[in-house]
């Protein structure tokens, strides 16, 4: 029998990918009031992948998919979305201040231990902070193998997992024995939309609530933000109406 996979999927509530973020008037933070928020796109891939593993390996091999989010009370919405997609249950670690990846990784490490999970599938980066660190840090903290930027995940016999990773210039394949941490890349799958029925059902699924302090952690920041700025906007240089016009303009600009 295949090794059972007890999966944790961390999800993050972020400004929707289609929204152009703006600084608040005091330039101290990115404006989130009245801005559309969504699940981080890479986290949707994580949920989808865990569901596909269940579809392929069976319910008995993938008995539990736990969605975890760290953030404000509103992150419950993101967890509902995860459960509407198919996650079995959810844990919200409520914290209003900004949490850096190191603290997120430490908290997830505690959840992994408590839940006795053996596979964490996490997005390769969140599209707000763009750090791309949490999965690797979690693997380091737990001493587990890691496979980042996964575009294909295969569960082999004997608890081995083989992962095709996106790297500069192509792909690389690694394999490791469970437990392990995998981070998802865009090519991994196409996330499903939650059906209305499943959205309704998700409302009845449980969300366990904890605080960072329940894990002996605090949202202490190692990186102090000194300044936030919007980059100088680039001014378009106008249009030309012919290939010759394009060529002569490129020559003027010294580009060819």
């Amino acid at each position: 029998m295949a090794t059972p996979l007890r999966i944790i999927v961390p999800v993050k509530r972020v400004i929707d990918y289609a929204v152009k973020p703006r600084l608040n008037s005091a330039k101290t933070a990115v404006e989130t009031a009245g801005v559309k928020m969504s699940m981080n796109p890479f986290d949707e891939l994580s949920i989808e992948e865990s569901l596909r593993l269940r579809a392929k390996l069976g319910q008995s091999t993938v008995p539990d998919i736990l969605a975890v989010s760290l953030g404000s009370a509103k992150s419950a919405d993101t967890l509902r979305t995860a459960m509407a997609m198919g996650a079995d249950r959810a844990l919200l670690i409520e914290e209003d201040s900004e949490i850096e990846p190191l603290v997120v990784a430490k908290a997830l490490g505690k959840v992994v231990e408590k839940e006795n999970c053996n596979l964490v599938i996490v997005g390769k980066q969140s599209i707000d902070d763009d750090a791309g660190q949490t999965g690797q840090m979690l693997a380091g903290i737990l001493g587990w193998p890691q496979a980042i930027q996964a575009s294909k995940v295969e569960v082999l016999d004997g608890g081995w997992v083989q992962v095709v990773k996106e790297v500069d210039g192509g792909t690389e394949t690694v394999k490791a024995k469970l437990p392990m941490v995998i981070t998802t890349d865009l090519r991994l799958n196409e996330p499903r939309y939650a059906s209305l029925t499943n959205i309704m059902k998700a409302k009845r699924k449980p969300i366990e609530k904890k605080k960072l302090s329940d894990f002996g952690l605090s949202a202490i920041k190692r990186l102090e933000t000194l300044k936030l700025a919007e980059p100088k906007p680039r001014q378009g240089g106008g249009k030309v109406d012919s290939v010759d016009g394009l060529l002569s303009r490129l020559k003027e600009l010294g580009a060819i």
């Binding site: 400004i15 152009k20 973020p21 600084l23 990115v30 599209i127 707000d128 902070d129 763009d130 990186l223 102090e224 933000t225 000194l226 300044k227 936030l228 700025a229 919007e230 980059p231």
Partner: peptide, 11 residues
């Protein structure tokens, strides 16, 4: 951060 839409200076 934010796909290069914000530039953060951090210590």
């Amino acid at each position: 951060i934010y796909a290069g839409n914000i530039i953060a200076t951090v210590k």
